Simulated assay, not measured.
Amino acid sequence: MSELKSFESERIYWAVEQVERVAGDVDELHLDDNTFYIKSEADNVIAELKEHVKGLILDNYLKDKELRRQKYKRCLAMARWCDAEADVADADGDYEDMRWYQKWYKRWLAIAEKFKTNSTAQ
């Protein structure tokens, strides 16, 4: 990223001071120092920063997409595990555990749906 070169000009400072005096008590015209930047250079730096921000947004989106996919897969894995444990509990005749695992199977599937990516939106 390029740096802005600052310029100090007493002449420009004096001209803006004159405008402030003529304008009177206008809030928009304040001058704290006599440091100025060339507009074309400032516009170039702003354009670079905008491109940098676009890149960060894209990176963020891709990371979020991958994280959601991982969470979705983990939720499905937990749902499959609960389903398998419910089958084991059913075979052992432990119906209380079976109902508990079935309840959690449904919960994990519901959580997985929240992380499921919408393929039509992409």
Rank of each mutant, 00 (worst) to 15 (best):
Y95G: 06
G55K: 07
A112V: 00
K54C: 01
V88A: 15
K54G: 04
E51S: 13
Q70P: 06
K103G: 03
R68H: 06
A110D: 14
Y72F: 15
D94E: 06
K106F: 03
Y101F: 08
R107W: 05
W100V: 03
K71Y: 13
K103E: 01
A86C: 01
K103T: 04
A84N: 02
D83P: 04
A79M: 00
W104S: 05
L49S: 13
W81M: 11
L67D: 12
D87M: 15
K65W: 07
I57A: 03
E66H: 02
R74S: 15
N60M: 00
D59W: 01
A86H: 01
D83Y: 13
D83G: 11
A112P: 06
W108I: 02
A79W: 05
C75H: 05
N60R: 02
A89C: 05
K106T: 04
Q70F: 09
Y61G: 01
Y101W: 12
F115L: 03
C75P: 08
L58F: 03
R99Q: 06
E96Y: 07
A84C: 10
K103N: 09
K65C: 01
Y61E: 04
F115P: 04
Q70V: 14
L56E: 06
E66N: 05
C82W: 07
K116L: 09
K106Q: 09
K114E: 15
H52M: 09
Y101P: 00
L76H: 11
A79N: 02
K63V: 02
C82A: 08
K54N: 11
A91D: 10
M98Y: 00
V53W: 06
V88S: 12
R80E: 15
Y95S: 11
K54M: 04
K65N: 03
Q102C: 06
E96Q: 12
C75D: 08
E85P: 03
A110P: 08
W100H: 08
R99H: 12
N60H: 06
D90E: 15
Y95H: 08
A79Q: 05
M98V: 04
A77W: 05
D59M: 00
Y105K: 11
E48W: 00
M78V: 09
L49D: 07
M78H: 15
E48M: 02
K73V: 15
D64I: 09
L62V: 07
I111C: 00
R99L: 10
A110I: 03
E96D: 14
L76I: 12
L67H: 13
A86M: 07
D94P: 07
D64L: 15
K54P: 03
H52T: 09
E96F: 10
L62N: 07
M98I: 00
G93V: 06
D92H: 12
L109M: 12
K103Y: 02
A84K: 12
Y95M: 12
A112D: 02
K116Q: 14
L58C: 03
R74F: 13
H52P: 00
V88H: 13
E113F: 09
R80T: 11
K116P: 10
K116W: 09
Y105N: 14
D87R: 15
L49E: 13
